[in-house]
Amino acid sequence: MDFMGIERDRLHLSWISSAEATKFIDVVGEVTAAIKALGPNTNFVKNKAKAA
């Protein structure tokens, strides 16, 4: 994805057991922070269909 021009931090992968509530909270926090830092991705937004 990096190669295509989509920032690496937009995709996170984590392995969290259902018993690891605290890890889940931490990871969600990290993900949100990373993505907020990048700001919205304007590149992959589809504009409304242009009227013919």
Binding site: D2, F3, M4, G5, I6, E7, N43
Partner: peptide, 17 residues
């Protein structure tokens, strides 16, 4: 060629494609 694209910035890569 792949490495050349890899060295571009995110914006430049997007523009390249």
């Amino acid at each position: 060629d792949v490495r050349k694209i890899d060295s571009l910035s995110t914006e430049e890569k997007w523009r390249f494609f």
